[in-house]
Each structure stands twice: as structure tokens, then as C-alpha cells.
């Protein structure tokens, strides 16, 4: 099913000559996990802003082409209604805390209050999301005194509580330590298993390769490559163009160059491990 369709979309930020997005043609289907990668200022965040309806509802500037969200043109959507459809989480854990609530519990409930959810349901939903994200020990704390990783988990909880079908997640771990990063990916994986449509911008390509149904590689405001992770990462052009690819794929490509290829281009560590095990057992068997 079609969730978000982009038809020949181009966009320039206000007063800017350069195109932030150029001729984007892509359809995001419901229930799938999309990994978006590419170098800085390739247009990844702009793509998020577009899909999230912030362009054109918050950012002015020149938008051409059609953006259809659930079949309806983004320009016809009420900007504030889109926030109930599409959840948005981004990198800065500090600005995502409202600053008007003095316990994490109330912070998570803020979005539900704004949606006018009645109190009984609000409490139920908050309990569920707190259990889901395992942040029971945080609920009584003041969200304004938490660490970055804790704040980011609260930000996820606050958005997940609103129960959006589509989640746009823009570099959620770029300001976090490895341990918090692992926590966040666990959360994202769980959301995937719940059947949410997820658009994740992330530099950590190993994780993208592992979780994504589809990968989009952005370059200079357009989608340079797209397809399943194995399609995209087995393309050797990516390395030549300086796109970061998973370690497993890198190893696979290297072996291929040395005429000792794996059975296929591996993209996850698990696949690479299996190939190596297989080869080792062959080696052992021949002697």
C-alpha cells in the first residue's frame, strides 16, 4: 500500500539558489523500513522535512512536483493534522524535551494532551509505552535533568505514545554514546516489528543494512541509488563514489577483487560470518 508518494519533487529553501532536492521520484510503502544514507548536506534532512509536511507548512521556499501523503496532496493537508499522522524524532535530545513538564510521565503525556485524548486512555497509553521502552525508572524524574541518552529515549516514548503509523527518524543516535545507540536501535527494531512505516536517516550503515527493507542513497539532493540492502550494497560503484557501505559488504567486495569471492555479496555481519565459516569448513575438509 502506498504511504507517501513523491512525484518529480524539487525544492529550494527560501532565498537559496541551490536545489536542496532535485527531481525526487519515489514511493514509500506502508509497513516498510526505509534506511536513508548519504554524505552531509545531500538532502537527507530536507527529505525528512518534506515527508513530514514541514515543507511547505513550516519552511517556505520553492516546492514543485507532487507530494502525496495517503493519496492527498501535502499542500491540502492541515499542517497540524500531519503531526498526528507522522511522528518525528531527530538528533538533538535537548530541544525535543518540552521544558514545560516536571516529570517524565507528564512529558510523555504532553502529545496526548494536545491531541485531546481522555485521561483514562492517556494513562493506559503512557504505561504501555513506558513498559515498551523499559523506562520505568525514569517516570518520576524531571526530564530537564536527564542525560542525552535518557532524553532521547523519553523523546521516542513521547512520539510513540501518539501512535503514529509513520515515523520519520533523523539521525537519532548521532549525539549519543554506543550504549544508548544500542538502546535506540532496539527500540527502532521493535517499532518495525509492530508494522510501523519507518524512514530512518542514519550514518551507521551496518545497522541500516541489517534492519532496512529498502535503502536510499542520497547525493546532491537526489536519490542516487535505491533498492533492497543487498541490491544497493552489492553495487561496487558505491565504494568508488565514496558512499559508506557496511563492513561485511566491503570485505565481500575486497575478496571479489582478489578473485576469492563469497557466494554472494554479504551485507550483514551475520552473512559474512556464515560465509567465512563455510569457507573455513571447506579448508578444513580438504586436508
Amino acid at each position: 500500500m502506498k504511504g507517501i508518494e513523491l512525484k518529480n519533487v524539487s525544492y529550494q529553501y527560501p532565498l537559496s539558489e541551490a536545489f536542496a532536492l532535485k527531481n525526487i521520484h519515489y514511493t514509500f510503502e506502508k509497513g516498510k523500513f526505509y534506511g536513508i544514507i548519504g554524505p552531509n548536506s545531500a538532502g537527507k534532512t530536507t527529505l525528512c522535512n518534506l515527508v513530514r509536511g514541514l515543507i511547505p507548512h513550516f519552511y517556505e521556499g520553492e516546492l514543485s512536483g507532487d507530494v502525496l501523503i495517503e493519496g492527498k496532496d501535502v499542500r491540502e493537508w492541515d499542517g497540524s493534522l500531519l503531526s498526528t499522522k507522522i511522528g518525528y524524532i531527530f538528533q538533538n535530545p535537548f530541544t525535543q524535551i518540552s521544558g514545560v513538564k516536571d516529570t517524565v510521565l507528564e512529558e510523555i503525556a504532553l502529545g496526548l494532551e494536545n491531541l485531546g485524548i481522555d485521561k483514562e486512555e492517556m494513562i493506559e497509553r503512557v504505561i504501555n509505552v513506558v513498559k515498551l521502552l523499559k523506562i520505568e525508572d525514569l517516570i518520576k524524574k524531571n526530564p530537564n535533568n536527564l542525560s542525552g541518552g535518557q532524553r532521547q529515549r523519553v523523546a521516542f516514548a513521547s512520539i510513540i505514545a501518539m501512535d503514529n503509523d509513520i515515523l520519520v527518524i533523523d539521525e537519532p543516535t548521532s549525539q549519543l554514546d554506543p550504549e544508548s545507540t544500542a538502546d535506540i536501535f532496539e527500540i527502532i527494531n521493535m517499532l518495525k516489528s509492530q508494522g510501523k512505516t519507518i524512514l530512518l536517516v542514519e550514518h551507521k550503515v551496518d545497522l541500516i543494512a541489517e534492519y532496512s527493507d529498502e535503502v536510499l542513497v542520497m547525493e546532491n539532493g537526489h536519490i542516487a541509488y535505491s533498492g533492497t540492502p543487498s541490491d544497493v550494497f552489492s553495487n561496487i560503484e558505491l565504494i568508488d563514489r565514496g558512499v559508506a557501505i557496511p563492513q561485511a559488504a566491503l570485505l565481500s567486495h575486497d575478496l571479489q577483487r582478489q578473485n576469492k569471492p563469497f557466494d554472494f555479496i554479504t551485507i550483514t555481519n551475520e552473512q559474512a560470518k556464515q560465509q567465512i565459516m563455510k569457507r573455513m569448513s571447506c579448508v578444513n575438509g580438504s586436508y
Binding site: L54, Y88, E106, G111, L115
Partner: peptide, 25 residues
């Protein structure tokens, strides 16, 4: 930083048309 704040609060339905409810009454 107000730009990010506005986006973050918008994601929390800050300007949703519904009459808002309150957890703490």
C-alpha cells in the same frame, strides 16, 4: 534553537485543533 523547538513541539501536536486535555488536573 527556537526552530528545532518549534519542530519538536509540532511533532507533539502543539497546534492540533483538538481541545487539549490534562493529565494533571
Amino acid at each position: 534553537s527556537t526552530e528545532e523547538k518549534a519542530i519538536a513541539m509540532e511533532a507533539r501536536a502543539f497546534s492540533a485543533p483538538e481541545k487539549n486535555t490534562h493529565l494533571s488536573e
